[in-house]
């Protein structure tokens, strides 16, 4: 932190820091109920022998993590937060960012957690899961509210490495979008630890499409895009992707994805960007709601 910004830590800033520290560890240990349900349902539905073996092991692994109070997966990921900030929330986003950074750092040192962040060129470790522009934060600012919602999504590299962008042309249409998503997920095979959540971002610009794909993976399983056109695309893709036969861990089977989420933005009349971001079966996510008074409520379902 530079000298100009280094004022005293106000109580609500401390609250956000504590929340971040808690959320990071909680997300890594205790996966959300909607995900547990989806994995359980996948196990019931899967008919291939290796596929069922994989899903049995995943369900058993989640139980062991609960019992042993251990991490669900060893990859503590890169820390990504999603903040929805009310216009009346009494802490400037610059301060929220500092609080998230300190919380991430503290969780990593105190637990302790594996630290993954390195300088992109030198590959030297940059600190306890923090670095230049890390953690990564998605911001949304809302009018008429004075609270803060913060969601922590530690993103594993095995699945993040399976991210794809294509600038389709308008003439490719919806079929082009679907084809690109299908090709991406078949090409990824077992590498991103399927079955997980396929996040798709369409429209906007190249960078914004990928941003939207990342928004899509953070949604709880079972939620649907409010736009009926987009929701229909989600359903179509979910069905198509599960017909590829890639299966759990790419060993072949009926369940290749648990869900497909699509987020969209309007775009230029000559653009048709499609971004795919994969979230593995360990789709970790944990949320907190912070009031203007600094009260915190942790939320398993958000």
């Amino acid at each position: 932190m530079d000298a100009v910004g280094a004022g005293p830590v106000r109580p609500v800033e401390r609250v956000v820091e504590d929340a971040a520290a808690y959320l990071y560890v909680w997300a890594l240990k205790d996966i959300p109920q909607d995900l547990r349900d989806a994995l359980g349902a996948a196990r019931e539905r899967e008919t291939s022998v290796p596929g069922r073996r994989v899903l049995d092991t995943i369900v058993r692994n989640v139980e062991v993590a609960d019992r042993e109070d251990n991490l669900v997966c060893q990859d503590t990921g890169i820390a990504v937060y999603y903040c929805r900030v009310g216009e009346g929330f009494p802490l400037h986003p610059a301060r929220i960012y500092e609080a998230l950074r300190r919380g991430t750092e503290r969780a990593t040192v105190e637990h302790p957690l594996r630290s993954n962040t390195v300088h992109t060129l030198t590959r030297q470790n940059t600190g306890p899961n923090v670095g230049y522009r890390v953690p990564i934060v998605h911001w949304e600012f809302v009018t008429g509210r004075d609270d803060l919602d913060v969601k922590c999504v530690p993103k594993g590299s095995g699945s993040e490495n399976m991210s794809f962008l294509r600038m389709c042309v308008p003439a490719d249409g919806v079929a082009g979008i679907k084809r690109f998503v299908l090709d991406s997920i078949v090409g990824a095979g077992g590498k991103p630890c399927p079955p997980g959540i396929v996040g798709v971002g369409i429209g906007g610009t190249a960078d914004y499409a990928m941003h939207l794909a990342k928004e899509a993976i953070a949604r709880p399983i079972g939620t649907r895009n409010p736009d009926p056109e987009v929701a229909r695309l989600e359903d179509d893709l979910y069905g198509l992707l599960n017909e590829t036969g890639i299966g759990p861990m790419g060993l072949g089977g009926d369940v290749t994805v648990l869900q497909c989420h699509v987020e969209h933005a309007d775009t230029h009349m000559t653009l048709n960007p499609v971004a795919v971001n994969y979230q593995c079966w360990a789709a970790r996510r944990a949320s907190a709601h912070v009031t203007a008074d600094g009260d915190v409520r942790y939320d398993r379902d958000a």
């Binding site: 092991t57 997966c73 095995g158 861990m249």
Partner: peptide
Amino acid sequence: LAIVGGAAALETT
């Protein structure tokens, strides 16, 4: 031999 990626809690035990 394929292991289940990410199933580290179990693997550790």
